[in-house]
Design a binder for these strands. Structure first.
Lengths: 215, 215
DNA sequence: TGCTCCTGACCGACCGGTCAGATAGTATTG
DNA sequence: CAATACTATCTGACCGGTCGGTCAGGAGCA
């Protein structure tokens, strides 16, 4: 089946083009033509492989969350111990200013859609379900080992994710996001660990800063 | 000056109409005509009192954040002690499912604009600055009294706000937001206090649930 | 010849913004 | 008091431009 592979390829190219466009302009300001040009094809192709603009973007966001779920699982799986897993998550979610801006601009746009269109809402629900599962895994391990304070794991996972998202919203409105990117990442790590760690078990807050990665 | 008062009145009516429309449809899908109809005037009036659609919405968001700042300050000022102040904040931010949905839909839309247009970004910056100031006041009082764990107050305030926003994003993608609204509010209160309270000083986590208000 | 894939002109709908004029309230004049 | 002039406010038809979606046909291949 040559065509199936070709179709998958085509859709992928369109998704990537759509992602870059939506990150820059926002869903409503992106035209099918913008996407086509960015993908190096003609406008007609966009609606040859997708039923509508909504369809294309629904597919895009679906693909985006799947890929981020996979990357989170990989990063968490590769790290040893709950504290390191949290750090791995932070490192993954804060890769670089430009990638962050692109992703979270698209993300905010997506939230606006999810808050109003059932179809997008379902994708958002899946996103949070996946995150909660990953986050809960970390939280439960931390509790089991006595490193994290013992509490409702699902709720804790939810709050953990809220801190990520909430800090990102704040970062997006900073005057000079590039300048304070590292500060936000380190702060995020510090705050998450402060929130999670059982008192006394201090895995030395300073160690957090020491291990902070350069970019 | 009759006209000055009249103008202020008119602009207010338009703002309110715009708010209800943007909460339902989202910035890009609201037309000036929608706003005019909702306000009970003709389309021309919108651009008689505002220079452009962007101008109208910038004004709307400015007005919105000012009024929320005022209400937060009032609520916090009327409450006794840091824990009660946090609770007052939660009660204010979670008034009812319908108000929440309206406000946070508009809010998410606004974040999308703030992330892309300098003019809106500045309004967002002012919003967070005001929040941080209010939040820090509470945090510092809690620390001074030994109720909250001693840490960087600004950072703590920032995380506190992140938890609000992050949980709201999750709530917006819930299948049945009305059904879990109370659960989210109580959870928000519980998680905030867990995050803030110094260990041992337990203002009894159970007391939090006991005091939860019915709606 | 027939098929898949692709192109871009085209269509109809929509929308922000403009503007010529209607309307109504107030001041001025006789 | 009535007639007139002036002004602030309001109206909605209209314009120019845009965009999602359609489609007739072209290109390349079997």
């Amino acid at each position: 089946m040559r065509s199936a592979h070709h179709e998958a390829e085509r859709r992928l190219v369109l998704r990537k083009a759509a992602f870059r466009e939506v990150a820059e302009r926002g869903f409503s300001n992106v035209t099918l033509e913008d996407i086509a040009v960015r993908a190096g094809v003609s406008k007609g192709v966009t609606l040859y492989y997708f039923d509508s603009k909504d369809d294309l973007f629904c597919d895009l966001f679906s693909w985006l969350i799947d890929s981020i779920h996979v990357r989170m699982r990989d990063a968490v799986g590769a790290a040893e111990g709950p504290v390191e897993k949290v750090r791995a998550l932070v490192a993954l979610i804060f890769p670089s200013p430009s990638k962050n801006r692109a992703f979270f601009r698209a993300y905010v746009d997506f939230c606006g859609l999810a808050a109003r269109k059932e179809r997008f809402r379902q994708v958002g629900e899946r996103f949070y379900a996946g995150c909660r599962e990953i986050d809960r895994g970390i939280v439960e391990e931390g509790m089991r080992r006595g490193v994290f304070l013992l509490r409702d794991a699902g709720e804790t996972a939810s709050t953990l994710r809220a801190i990520f998202d909430g800090l990102m919203l704040q970062w997006l409105t900073e005057k000079e996001p590039e300048a304070c990117f590292d500060a936000y990442r380190e702060r995020c790590e510090r705050e998450l660990l402060h929130y999670l760690l059982a008192p006394g078990k201090s895995s030395a807050p300073e160690a957090v800063r020491t291990k902070a990665r350069r970019r």
